[in-house]
Amino acid sequence: MSDTKKWANAEDGSFKRQVSSFRETISPSHAIFKPAKGRYWLYVSLACPWAHRTLITRALKGLTSVIGVSVVHWNMDAKGWRFLPYSASSADELGDVYSPASGIACTPTSSSVSSVTNDSQRLGVDGTIEHNYHYNRLKELYYKAHPNYNARFTVPVLWDLETQTIVNNESSEIIRILNSGVFDEFADPEKNQLDLLPKELEAQIDEINSWVYNTINNGVYKAGFAESPQVYEKEVSSVFEHLQKVEHILRINYDTAVSKYGAEGAVSKLFLINEQLTEADVRLYPTIVRFDPVYVQHFKCNLSTIRDGFPMVDLWLRNLYWNIPAFRDTTNFDHIKLHYTRSHPRVNPLGITPLGPVPAILPL
């Protein structure tokens, strides 16, 4: 997600996403970036779906004690992403508010956020301090890494504390770094055996990721930030066409699982590929969990909600959220709703945050 300009549009009014600038990897054979415990740090927004996928992967792979996290404030103002102000007392409180799974405690959505102001500074609720250099702004990290950097300042950022620079700021590559096994010797032994990208499924995962990214992950942005009715209608129609494609895939997988495990047992086996949690699920989840709370109203993706129009997608979503802690523990509905509705004045000039849906996600 960007800061200095909320989105970039072509002459026809269509949304164009910025290409990430830092594209290094981490491996034992890399000349600079070698795996180590405590050397790397993630900078994220709990509102941002691209950052969210890195937090999920970090938790799934048992890396919460290996790679630290700082969380920006949910409000992205005219100067971009910011951290809560550093002070000695805030540093002392870190042990009380730091959640290994997410950076801050992810609690159920508030019944009302009308009293929450954009300059709210609740430590461990609105965000965290910047732990390593006590910076106030994300942009300071970008300038530390590259003094002449002149693009937008986006999350997530995978940072190297040893060389004090950005390793990578492309979320799809960060999650592959985390999944690659380079940190397995330091990881929680109960979790590090999980492989989100098994070789035999890689081609299938890549194929799903390709159209999911273009039509759903980025599709909601292309609809919401469109600046012409023609572009909007084209993009929102594409979003729902491809949600129906996901629905069809999950229906086949669910029916197959029912025949093997019964209706009750099938729910926990409901994934995009076979009966296995993969990167494809991790990459789709952040968009779907935001769909009813934000994208329906804020991005005008209102042909249907997920819960009312796509029963298999909704069941898949609830399975991930309620049955796999890494998804639930990194999902913060307050950050999600407050960020979108308060940080995009061109879309929502009054900054009013809708109360619904209630609940933000249905029980399983």
Rank of each mutant, 00 (worst) to 15 (best):
A203L: 14
Y98K: 09
W74N: 00
M312Y: 15
G224M: 02
V236Y: 03
E140M: 13
N132V: 14
P189G: 08
D308G: 10
M1I: 03
V358I: 14
E185R: 10
N118W: 05
S114F: 05
D206H: 06
L55E: 05
S102K: 06
K260T: 13
V157C: 08
N217I: 10
D96E: 14
Q244I: 00
F153A: 02
V97E: 04
N179P: 06
K34E: 07
F333D: 02
A223K: 06
V246K: 03
E207A: 14
V289F: 06
N148L: 14
V358A: 02
A36F: 06
L270M: 11
E185N: 08
H146I: 03
Q244P: 00
V296N: 02
A226D: 07
I324M: 10
E162N: 05
L63Q: 01
V116E: 00
D281L: 06
L355K: 13
S99Q: 07
S343F: 04
L196F: 01
G62N: 04
S304Y: 02
I336S: 04
A360P: 01
F153T: 05
N148A: 15
C301D: 06
V155T: 13
D3E: 13
D334Q: 05
D329K: 08
L355A: 11
F183T: 04
A263W: 10
R82S: 14
I208A: 09
E130G: 05
L362C: 02
S99T: 14
N302L: 08
V157L: 08
I32A: 02
L315E: 13
Q121E: 09
P345Q: 04
